[in-house]
Design a protein around this nucleic acid. Structure first.
Lengths: 95, 95
DNA sequence: GATTTATATGCGGATGCTAGCATATGCGCA
DNA sequence: TGCGCATATGCTAGCATCCGCATATAAATC
C-alpha cells in the first residue's frame, strides 16, 4: 500500500499510469514523447511503477514495452481507478 | 489532488484519517494516544490533513476537535474511501 | 496572576526524492 | 565487428519531508 501511494504521488507517474492503465503496450520512448520527460527521468519513474507491481514490462527488440499488471489486487486497482478518475474529472472542471 | 495524495502518503496520517473518516470529533490528544505518536508529530500531521481540506477543526475549550470535512469533493472522497478500504482489507489478510 | 492542560511552531539534523549529466548496457543491422 | 537507437544506472546537487526538542500560545481553574 505504501509503495502504491508513493508511486501515485508523482504527477509524471500518474500521467504515465493513466496512459498505461487503459490498456495496450507502451514503450519508454512513447511515454517520454507524450509526457515531455527526459529519458533518464522517464526510465526511473517507470522503474518505480514496476517495483510497485502496477505495471509489467517485457523486452521487445530495442524497446521495453510496459503494460498494466492484470494480476493486481482488486482493492488496490480500485485505488488507482479512483485516483485516475478523480484526476480526469478535476481536469475537466478546470478546462 | 497532489495535496490529497501527499497527505495520504504517510501511514500516521492515514491512521488518523481512518479514525476521523468514520465520523465524530476527535481531539489531538486522543489521536496521540491511539496512534502512539508524540505531540508535535501528531499536531503537524493534523496540520497537513487540515491544509488538504480532508478534515475541519474547531476550538473547544483547551481542545481542538477534528472532524471529517463533509463538503469534500465526491471524486476525492472516493479516493480516500478506496485507500482506507484497501488498507482495511489488506490488514485483515495479514492477520 | 500563577499553574495546569492542550496544542502549535521554530529550529536543526537525518533521511529521501527528483532531476540532470554522463556513461553503461542491450539489441538490431550493416 | 562496429554503429546507432532504446533503455538503465552511478553520481551529485537541490530540495522536501519527518522527527525530536524546546518553547510559545491558548484556555481553564485556582
Amino acid at each position: 500500500m505504501q509503495q502504491i501511494l508513493t508511486a501515485l504521488c508523482d504527477p509524471t507517474r500518474r500521467a504515465a499510469l493513466a496512459i498505461i492503465w487503459g490498456g495496450g503496450e507502451h514503450c519508454v520512448c512513447e511515454l517520454m514523447a507524450r509526457l515531455d520527460a527526459s529519458q533518464s527521468r522517464m526510465s526511473r519513474h517507470m522503474k518505480v511503477l514496476r517495483e510497485a507491481a502496477l505495471v509489467l514490462d517485457r523486452r521487445d527488440a530495442q524497446w521495453v514495452r510496459f503494460r498494466r499488471n492484470p494480476q493486481f489486487a482488486p482493492e488496490l486497482s480500485a485505488v488507482v481507478d479512483a485516483v485516475l478518475a478523480a484526476e480526469r474529472t478535476l481536469d475537466k472542471e478546470i478546462a
